[in-house]
Simulated assay, not measured.
Amino acid sequence: MAEYDLNELQKIRENKEVLEYLEEHGIIEIKKFNDIYDYEKELYDLQVKLLKLQYEIIEKGKRVLIIFEGRDAAGKGGTIGRIIEHLNPKKVRVVALPKPTEEESGQWYFQRYIKHLPNAGEIVIFDRSWYNRAVVEPVFGFCSKEQHELFMNQVPEFEKQLVDDGIILIKLFLSISKEEQAERLKERKDDILKRWKIGTLDQQAQEKWDVYSGYIEDLFKQTGTKKAPWLEISKDNKKKARLASFKLIINAIVGNEQEKPDTFITKYD
Results as ranks from 00 to 15, higher is better:
102 E>I: 12
101 T>Y: 08
31 K>S: 12
61 G>H: 01
108 W>F: 13
48 V>D: 07
88 N>M: 04
34 N>F: 05
107 Q>F: 11
75 G>S: 11
64 V>H: 04
44 Y>S: 13
104 E>C: 01
91 K>Y: 15
57 I>L: 02
93 R>K: 15
60 K>T: 02
122 E>M: 09
40 E>K: 12
29 E>H: 11
82 R>M: 06
27 I>V: 15
33 F>M: 06
113 Y>F: 15
47 Q>E: 12
71 R>C: 05
50 L>T: 10
41 K>T: 05
87 L>Q: 06
81 G>E: 09
119 N>K: 15
116 H>F: 13
98 P>H: 07
74 A>W: 02
108 W>S: 11
79 T>H: 04
61 G>K: 01
59 E>L: 03
92 V>C: 09
36 I>V: 13
102 E>Y: 01
92 V>M: 09
62 K>I: 00
30 I>Y: 12
112 R>E: 09
41 K>Q: 11
96 A>V: 05
89 P>A: 04
118 P>H: 06
70 G>M: 00
26 G>P: 10
39 Y>L: 07
78 G>R: 09
58 I>K: 14
112 R>N: 10
114 I>Y: 00
49 K>A: 12
119 N>F: 06
49 K>C: 09
123 I>D: 00
68 F>P: 03
64 V>N: 00
63 R>S: 00
79 T>N: 08
44 Y>Q: 08
83 I>L: 15
103 E>N: 07
26 G>K: 11
36 I>G: 00
69 E>Y: 07
68 F>Y: 14
74 A>L: 05
95 V>W: 07
59 E>A: 11
100 P>L: 05
105 S>G: 14
59 E>V: 04
122 E>H: 09
69 E>K: 08
115 K>E: 14
108 W>G: 10
29 E>Q: 12
121 G>Y: 03
119 N>S: 14
101 T>P: 09
115 K>S: 14
34 N>C: 03
41 K>L: 15
118 P>R: 00
118 P>Y: 01
